[in-house]
């Protein structure tokens, strides 16, 4: 019984940890990305978004990808506003669920 309780508490802790660690992938189509030395401001502005990490900029395809961790409701308008503040033109924002932890404690 004691062992079951300990296992149950451990299971709860892992599940909570997993749900806090859940990260979403965000893809942003951006126009005007024509010079890498101009993109620093874009990275800085996107880093202002709570939970933002792993920002990658693909110039050829006009695509910015990033992860936002620990946020259930991501504000697409906030992301678009940040892109505009950086001096570029946001075209489309896509949010994909991307679980951060791939381990299943039940197995």
């Amino acid at each position: 019984m004691k062992q079951t309780k300990i296992l149950f508490i451990l299971f709860l802790l892992v599940e909570v940890g997993i749900s806090f660690g859940q990260s979403k992938e965000v893809k942003i189509r951006v126009d005007g990305l024509s010079c890498p030395f101009c993109a620093y401001g874009l990275e800085k502005k996107l880093n202002d978004i709570k939970g933002a990490e792993n920002i990658n900029i693909d110039f050829e395809n006009g695509l910015v990808t990033m992860n936002i961790a620990g946020e259930k409701n991501i504000n697409k308008k906030e992301i678009k506003d940040k892109v505009k503040e950086a001096g570029f033109t946001p075209i489309k924002v896509e949010i994909l669920d991307f679980p951060k932890s791939s381990e299943n404690p039940k197995q």
Partner: peptide, 9 residues
């Protein structure tokens, strides 16, 4: 003025 498109401005 500012006219942006994919990978150009």
């Amino acid at each position: 003025f500012q006219f942006d498109s994919k990978a150009k401005t």
